[in-house]
Nucleic acid binder design. Sequence first.
DNA 1: GTGAATGCAAAAACTTTGCATACGC
DNA 2: GCGTATGCAAAGTTTTTGCATTCAC
Lengths: 142, 142
Amino acid sequence: MTKHDKRDARETLRGAGFRATKPRLLLFSLLEKSRAPLPIHDIAARLQRHSVDQVTVYRMIDAFMRAGLVREVNFQGQRPRYELVDIEHDHHHIVCTKCHKIEDFVGCDSERLEEKALEQSHFQKITGHSFDLYGLCDTCAK
Amino acid sequence: MTKHDKRDARETLRGAGFRATKPRLLLFSLLEKSRAPLPIHDIAARLQRHSVDQVTVYRMIDAFMRAGLVREVNFQGQRPRYELVDIEHDHHHIVCTKCHKIEDFVGCDSERLEEKALEQSHFQKITGHSFDLYGLCDTCAK
DNA sequence: GTGAATGCAAAAACTTTGCATACGC
DNA sequence: GCGTATGCAAAGTTTTTGCATTCAC
């Protein structure tokens, strides 16, 4: 993590009305470095080395979600995972059903489907969506 | 639940290699009648009136999932829900972010997206997908 | 200095496991 | 009758709550 990243994290936190505490900066850094969304368990395990309590992880994730900094992702048969929200690089996930490897992909044009759904349902407005694929990665398909 | 339904449930269970026990028939009936997928908590609460234990609910759901009779559905910030698999009437869900009402919609042509994802990723094969919408229902949008 | 945020302890909620009994076949 | 499936008890996990202390501002 570079100085630049650290300053960004600080600013983002402050901007969202948070104090830039050590546990929060560590969580930010961890999520930034992680290629895949992480479950609470993993986050807590890694931050424990820095004396951050599990309870603090729950509270930080909750606060970040409310502030729109973090997003929850749910995969079949797994506990919820969390990742930083990156508006400019929206993406979806593809999960290997065998080894649970996760990769990203972009280009889910859900607009058409949202329209369809509005016609079919008693809903007025769509505010979000989730779209995930399951399959076999190179290694597991062999 | 009609006699006809009951016979169907029996046959489906037997066909999947299960004994048609009272708790299983009750679970089947409950899921059949339910318009939305149900969380364990709800299922257990309703079957408790018929002296079915919570542990049995966990075990039945697990067994039915392995057998492909039941599918798990995950919504943001909620515990997993379960619904009967109905191959002929595949559908997706639209969830109200305010009152948590759930409706179905059909017509998610994911083939194109699956192709795109395969090109972008190191995956060989897509075996499934999940697609859910979030929004405001008629009542909550007012 | 002040109040938001944290750590620690404890409680609550959720899920799994073990085993004796019941019941579908 | 045989063996799967269940209920009950108990253990194991995960998540939430309370409160005194710490630390960012």
